[in-house]
Write a protein that binds this DNA or RNA. Sequence first.
DNA 1: TTCCCCTTATGGTCTGACCACAGTATGGTC
DNA 2: GACCATACTGTGGTCAGACCATAAGGGGAA
Lengths: 233, 233
Amino acid sequence: MADSWAPVKRTRTFEEVLAQIERRIAEDGLRIGDRLPGERQLAEQLQVSRSSVREALRVLETLGVLSSQVGRGPEAGAVLISRPGAALTDLLRLHVGLDGLEPAELIETRLMIERFAAERAALRGPDTSALSEALAAMDAASGPEEFVEHDIAFHCAIADASGNRLIAVIMRSLRDSVRPHAVQAVERIGDTAGLRADHQRILDAISAGDPAEAARAVTDHLAKTYPPGPAPA
Amino acid sequence: MADSWAPVKRTRTFEEVLAQIERRIAEDGLRIGDRLPGERQLAEQLQVSRSSVREALRVLETLGVLSSQVGRGPEAGAVLISRPGAALTDLLRLHVGLDGLEPAELIETRLMIERFAAERAALRGPDTSALSEALAAMDAASGPEEFVEHDIAFHCAIADASGNRLIAVIMRSLRDSVRPHAVQAVERIGDTAGLRADHQRILDAISAGDPAEAARAVTDHLAKTYPPGPAPA
DNA sequence: TTCCCCTTATGGTCTGACCACAGTATGGTC
DNA sequence: GACCATACTGTGGTCAGACCATAAGGGGAA
């Protein structure tokens, strides 16, 4: 018989703790803002060491569903949250750093998201004040760094306007991950007047409720910012 | 003076360890497959306890860039990897469980990805054997569970065919997260002949290299599977 | 040469202790 | 009675040291 025998998955203690905590969240109907028992109490309940509990809590914190606060009182302890942003940003940064993902893949994903978000934003037609403010801030920017800062705000506002939080959070993580590339791109282009016109065109299309034009405007803008072919190192 | 004073971010030891490890990965040019020093050695080098090192490693493992193996030899120890899939799946599942994300947002994101991936796949025109195989497996499925299994394979194959690993991994995590909903949808529809026709249409469009038709086919298919309006509980 | 056992290095777990922090209770002062 | 400084207590954060299970490698015996 071949050695195709055992799935016998080695289950580490902290993984079991993780599963138990997730089960309790579901069964007890715990919500954002609720608190988990203390580390010592949790360890005693589950009959494991505090180390294992801590490793499980660290995982949950890494995934953005838990926040640990020291001290005492209603604010202290492990509080359930839902902030996937940092987790996604860290994930993308680390995998790009290990060449597990190419920057080109992130940029293409960004194009996909932004085109979709612009369409949705034009259809929903929510207030475009965040977009206008970011545009004005870009005009007042004194350098590439600051310009990119508000550029990110502009494009993330588009994603926010899509009304889809998952798309918005992916968008923000993507932008945070490729921020250095964006700064390089702005420095390479130099003149930001063209970018301003692009942004204005996007804003106008969304304000006018024209999804097709919004998608085209975004596509043209990104094609200009990240030209295909001679990819920068 | 207001209390707008100090960000004074409390930096925990394991976070410092995390930063050091990430710095070493960048500076030493560590690649996928390379090994980190042992936990004890790392603790001594950084002058921290082994617990803090372990918590940092646990974070890296959670983010899918590290795999720990016990024992001895070239395979043992902490090996750098790049498998963001599990991390993304866990992230989505937990946040949905906490109502930090709505299933509708995941489904909409899936529509966005799949439409884009189908377009890209039609443009690239790689081999469609994976799609055909999944289609055949769906025909041979004996129940909703098995049908959904191969349905996931089919749609993930589309994402793979886009040539973008980030899009592919997001796609797979999304499908894994909404698997129960998909099973419910199949059971609600009952007859899978219509779904088969949809899939065949998508496959044909991709094979024919018609991106617009591929996008339309995907959009129609998903609109049928997840009808708007009376959202299931 | 072959096989078995011992060594060794690794991650996994546990225990118990101490620290830093931040509410809370206490008690004294005005 | 109101107010403020102090001590107390419970929380997460960190550490040191021990032991276990695992799996490769080495060495001795058949």
